[in-house]
Each structure stands twice: as structure tokens, then as C-alpha cells.
């Protein structure tokens, strides 16, 4: 059996390193090795988006990324959205628009929304739905989520 590998990366702006086996996924490393349980495992096969994180600015399903692939990378998880002093506009708008119920999909949606708005600060509804197609929600349905994203985009544009 292979021994553990040391991986270092920057997670939510903090330099972080950990040991893990080569076969571990980034999701497992985040949740089980680093205690960052914000990212969730909904399917384990890249379907549901509950594990979504940003890897060097790119939206990925961490259940499909090997932890060792994160070497030297900048990772943003839901724990890195918002600050110590308060919620980000995305988080605030999700709350105000009731875009969550059980909340299990929510971290993935928040990260995916951040990726969208970082790239496209003024998306149409269709663009939002297309971008968030990799995030599944069973409780709320998507209307409120789309509305929350629109509001967050407007807020971030200063409107």
C-alpha cells in the first residue's frame, strides 16, 4: 500500500499543508483531513455539485479531483466566501430570497455563484441557469436561487 504524500496549497487565502494518500479526493482531504466540512458529498461522482470548490479560480467538483492535484493551487471553499466580519452579498441574498431549505446543496451553489459573478457580473437568467446546471437542489427548486443570484449580482454592481 502506498504511503502518504505531503500536499501544500493555499486554502481560503491560508497556506495549508496536509498528508494524504494518493488516491484520496480533494473533497476527502478538505472534509476529513482539514476539517473543512462546508463542502458536502452529495453523489461522489461529479453529478450534484454539492462538493464544488474553486481550484485556481476554476469551478470544480472536488469529489472528482485527487487531493494531490491541489499541490501548489489556490483553493476557495464555501468557508472562504464572506469574511470574519460578515456575509458576502451572495450569502446575504440567498438568505433574503429563501434560496435554501435543508441547505445541503447551498455551499456548492454559493461557490458556483461566486465563480459565475467573478466571471460575469451581469448574467441573464438563462446564463445563471446554464452556469448553475451542475448544482442540484431537491428542496427549493431553482427559481428562488436564480432570483438570489440576480440580486447578488445587482448588489455587487452597486445597484
Amino acid at each position: 500500500m502506498t504511503g502518504k504524500v505531503a500536499v501544500s496549497a493555499t486554502i481560503n487565502t491560508e497556506p495549508t499543508d496536509w498528508l494524504c494518500e494518493p488516491r484520496e479526493t480533494l473533497l476527502e482531504a478538505l472534509r476529513d483531513r482539514l476539517g473543512l466540512t462546508g463542502s458536502k458529498e452529495g453523489c461522489g461522482n461529479g453529478n450534484c455539485g454539492a462538493c464544488a470548490v474553486l481550484l485556481d479560480g476554476r469551478l470544480v467538483n472536488s469529489c472528482c479531483v485527487l487531493a494531490v492535484e491541489a499541490q501548489g493551487a489556490e483553493i476557495t471553499t464555501v468557508e472562504g466566501v464572506g469574511t470574519r466580519d460578515g456575509l458576502s452579498p451572495i450569502q446575504q441574498c440567498f438568505l433574503e430570497e429563501a434560496a435554501l431549505q435543508c441547505g445541503f446543496c447551498t455551499p456548492g451553489f454559493i461557490v458556483a455563484t461566486k465563480a459565475l459573478l467573478d466571471k460575469n457580473p451581469n448574467p441573464t437568467d438563462d446564463e445563471i441557469r446554464w452556469w448553475l446546471a451542475g448544482n442540484l437542489c431537491r428542496c427549493t427548486g431553482y427559481d428562488k436561487i436564480v432570483r438570489a443570484v440576480q440580486n447578488a449580482a445587482a448588489k455587487q454592481r452597486g445597484e
Binding site: T37, S39, L87, Q91, E96, G103, P107, I110
Partner: peptide, 17 residues
């Protein structure tokens, strides 16, 4: 605004897993 909302949007909410 639901009272458990802040924990859920920040990833702080603790689920069974």
C-alpha cells in the same frame, strides 16, 4: 430570514456526516 440560514450559507452548519 430563517434562523439556521447563516450557518448554512457559510458552511458552518453541522450535518450528520
Amino acid at each position: 430570514v430563517r434562523p439556521d440560514g447563516v450557518d448554512k450559507v457559510t458552511g458552518r452548519a453541522i450535518y450528520g456526516a
